[in-house]
């Protein structure tokens, strides 16, 4: 699971969808892997417009990465290295195994072999 994806997924339990606490999920016991991907400056710039920065900070802190600044970088004026760092965090950093917990209902989701599972047990589906 790439960190960019964590900026979009939320709790799958229907009654949580109206709660602002269902996003982002809380990540714990995460094992990370690095996977090289080609850097594309315009791609990262356009993606950054869509990023919920506080949500990204919350997830990076969960996984023990404190490299990101408190404020969302201004992508029009920042230098290329900042964009390369964002590329590294958002696209090349993957959660191989770990857990995601909804801050609203405490439901636990597993990530195994880089694949998060959002299928719910029958009583919640």
């Amino acid at each position: 699971m790439k960190l960019l994806t964590t900026n979009f997924v939320q709790c799958a339990v229907k009654s949580c969808s109206s709660s602002s606490n269902c996003f982002p999920l809380h990540f714990t016991e995460c094992e990370l892997v690095h996977e090289d991907l080609e850097f594309d400056e315009d791609f990262i710039k356009n993606v950054m417009v869509k990023i919920d920065w506080p949500a990204l900070l919350s997830v990076t802190r969960d996984i023990g990465n404190n490299s990101l600044p408190e404020e969302k970088p201004n992508i029009e004026s920042c230098d290329e290295q900042v964009l390369r760092d964002l590329h590294l965090v958002l696209l090349e950093t993957q959660i191989k195994d770990g857990k995601m917990i909804c801050k609203n209902c405490d439901h636990l989701y597993h990530i195994k072999n880089t694949i998060p599972n959002f299928l719910l047990p029958p009583h919640l589906a």
């Binding site: 994806t5 997924v9 939320q10 799958a12 996003f23 080609e38 959002f118």
Partner: peptide
């Protein structure tokens, strides 16, 4: 080496914003 990601979910309950 593709951008993008995968996960398991139900088609009637895709948990994304």
């Amino acid at each position: 080496k593709n951008n993008g990601d995968v996960f398991t979910s139900d088609g009637l309950n895709v948990p994304i914003r």
